[in-house]
């Protein structure tokens, strides 16, 4: 009986996953670094409350695509983006868009934990302060506790909130960065290889966190670990030489992918 109902619950979740509305859509997205073209007309949609993993060999364009989603590429002078990327209804490359506000809605966690050289508390309140999300100390306290809870770090740091964030272990620093991203109440969280500098235990904690965050946020993660993509995501997109070659249910992708290049890549074969 129990088995049946669990299967039914899984199925319902999966169905929801396949019908959830698109949070972000990318249409014919191309990216050039100077003369060099890094992405070729990528059409990739990201569903709400879903973890989408971007995989592919180094230099395939997956990080480039990720960075388009909150206009991080704007910081590179020679970089030019064409095509259209829509968040909810709005084109994020529209000239009227406030990029700072966009990045509050679409937060980012990087490969290497990069806490500010400030206290744990200030690391978390930095964003809300800039965006004017809180005024009183009580409000900030609440944001700090809530964000650290969400990032699964609260119990480990609650007694030393005013110690430096850089004094934490690598895994804790990365979860602090996730708390910092969560603090401004983003809608989408982008993660660029968030576990590549972490040990297996810290990686497991971050992955568990990604799993929990999915209920409230839309997550896009770039990873070089096939197992990680298989574990944390519901949808997987495979990039190769700047092209999106396959986008599929994660379960299908890792048992029976459609594209030969995906097959070769995930099985560790010479193409």
């Amino acid at each position: 009986m129990n088995m049946m109902s669990e299967a039914a619950v899984e199925k319902a979740l999966d169905q929801k996953m396949n019908t959830a509305p698109y949070k972000m859509t990318g249409k014919d997205v191309s990216v050039y670094y100077g003369e060099k073209r890094a992405l070729f007309d990528v059409n990739l949609n990201v569903r709400e409350n879903t973890v989408t993993a971007l995989i592919g060999p180094s230099g395939c364009g997956k990080s480039t695509f990720l960075r388009c989603l909150n206009r991080m590429n704007d910081t590179i002078d020679s970089c030019r983006v064409t095509g259209k990327i829509v968040l909810d209804e709005g084109d994020i490359y529209d000239p009227s868009i406030d990029v700072v506000e966009l990045r509050a809605r679409v937060g980012m966690v990087f490969q290497k934990p990069n806490p500010f050289p400030k206290s744990i508390y200030e690391n978390v309140t930095y964003g809300p302060k800039i965006h004017g999300l809180a005024r009183t100390k009580a409000e900030f306290d609440q944001i700090v506790e809530h964000s650290l809870q969400k990032a699964g770090l609260w119990n480990e740091v609650k007694d030393r909130l005013h110690e430096s964030g850089t004094g934490l272990s690598g895994g804790q620093q990365q979860r602090l960065c996730i708390a910092r991203a969560v603090a401004v109440s983003p809608e989408v969280i982008l993660m660029d290889e968030p576990c590549s500098a972490l040990d297996p235990i810290a990686t497991a904690k971050v992955e568990e966190l990604i799993h929990e965050l999915r209920a409230n946020y839309t997550i896009v993660i770039v990873t070089h670990s096939m197992q990680q993509a298989a574990r944390v995501s519901q949808r997987t997109a495979m990039f190769h030489l700047g092209n999106l070659v396959e986008e599929n249910d994660t379960d299908k992708m890792f048992t029976n992918p459609d594209d030969q290049r995906t097959q070769d890549y995930i099985m560790g074969r010479f193409g």
Binding site: M226, F254, T255, N256, P257, I266, M267, G268
Partner: peptide
């Protein structure tokens, strides 16, 4: 050891 995927796993 290998954490096989797709056709290898099958």
């Amino acid at each position: 050891k290998r954490q096989p995927m797709a056709a290898d796993l099958r």
